[in-house]
Design a protein around this nucleic acid. Structure first.
Lengths: 115, 115
DNA sequence: ATGACGATTCTATAATTCGGGAAATATAGA
DNA sequence: TCTATATTTCCCGAATTATAGAATCGTCAT
């Protein structure tokens, strides 16, 4: 992954509204959620939501499919995995044993029970 | 971690220059690097670098200590771990078997078990 | 004390991003 | 077709962020 690409992906997530949307979709899982449901769940205005969903989609962080009148959005796990990998690449000069982030995540999944 | 906090941390990383700086420090490991060495390694202007190091420091992504005339910066692994944990919280609706992001990270991290 | 060096802060300008009103587009049902 | 619903696109003022020149601060050596 290129650094510009990674910065763009991070930029897409670096916004409280978009981060809320993204996490909602991550939690919704692969089946996704209709844009309108996201709007209702978050209280975000329809046009603002649409703009932000597009920004997330451009970064590959969400994907969409139409279902009747609704457009269903779901989290783009591949882009997420690439981003996390990029951030931790060559971490701690390749010595994983001194790498607190990876150790903590691997050990207990974090305080929120990530998995 | 609060969502505003996480968005702020992501925002600090969502900039090609700062991301380059951060990764350089991640790779340098806990011993860190002097600001001047970072400037030389990246070609970033001293004042711009200083501003961006301050932004990263405000997010907890780097820490600093003075050593003679130099100021040594190192990656803030705790903030990084918290951010990664937050991003993956409740990932994939609790179904680890469909959680590529964490599996990939755990694999690269060596002995950590997948999810 | 003076000069050199490493780094930061101040300041101004340029560029980007945000939010939401209004209008447009797409689909489904009557 | 007409109408209602779902979503997107266009636009623009306001707010934020980025960059770099100049000045300043802190430390070390002479």
């Amino acid at each position: 992954m290129e650094i510009q690409n990674a910065a763009g992906t991070l930029s897409a997530l670096a916004h409280a509204g978009r981060l809320e949307i993204f996490r909602l979709l991550v939690q919704a899982g692969p089946q996704g959620m209709a844009a309108g449901d996201v709007a209702r769940a978050t209280g975000i205005l329809a046009n603002t939501l649409s703009t932000n969903l597009n920004i997330l989609a451009a970064a590959g962080l969400v994907t969409s499919r139409r279902e009747g009148r609704s457009i269903i959005y779901s989290a783009g796990y591949d882009a997420m995995r690439e981003l996390l990998t990029f951030l931790m690449e060559d971490c701690c000069a390749g010595r994983a044993e001194i790498c607190p982030p990876l150790a903590a995540i691997s050990r207990d999944g974090g305080e929120g029970r990530a998995c």
